[in-house]
Amino acid sequence: MGSERPILLVAAAALVDGDGRVLVQRRPAGKPMAGLWEFPGGKVEAGETPEGALIRELHEELGIDVEQACLAPAVFASEPLGERHLLLLLFALRKWRGVVNARHADALKWVRPVELHRLDMPPADRPLIGLIEALI
Results as ranks from 00 to 15, higher is better:
E38L: 08
A13V: 12
L71D: 07
E61C: 01
R112F: 14
A12V: 14
G47F: 02
L89W: 05
P127M: 01
D17Q: 05
N101V: 12
R97H: 07
R56T: 06
P40W: 03
G2C: 11
M1L: 15
E83Y: 04
G18S: 13
Q68N: 12
H104W: 07
K109W: 14
P40C: 03
D120N: 03
V10T: 10
E48A: 06
R126E: 00
V100T: 07
L135Q: 03
H117W: 04
K43I: 10
G41L: 03
L108N: 08
Q68C: 14
P73F: 13
R118A: 11
F91N: 07
D65H: 15
G82M: 12
A134P: 00
K43M: 12
S3W: 15
L131D: 01
L119P: 01
R103H: 06
L116C: 00
E48R: 02
R26Y: 09
E38T: 11
L8K: 15
G30H: 08
H85V: 09
P32I: 13
P28Q: 03
P28F: 07
L36E: 15
L90Q: 08
W96A: 10
Q68R: 15
E4A: 15
A105M: 05
A72D: 11
A107S: 11
R27W: 03
P122C: 01
G30P: 04
G52F: 02
D65Q: 15
F76M: 10
I129F: 02
W110A: 04
A46Y: 09
A77I: 02
L88E: 04
I136L: 11
A134E: 13
L90H: 04
L135N: 01
K31A: 10
R56C: 02
L71C: 10
E51M: 05
A92L: 15
E51L: 06
A74T: 11
A134I: 01
A13D: 10
G42P: 06
A29F: 08
I129A: 00
H85G: 07
E57K: 11
F76R: 13
R97N: 06
A53H: 06
A13R: 03
L93R: 07
G63M: 06
F39I: 01
R84L: 10
Q25I: 08
L36M: 15
G41M: 05
E83M: 09
P127C: 01
W96P: 08
L128T: 01
E45T: 04
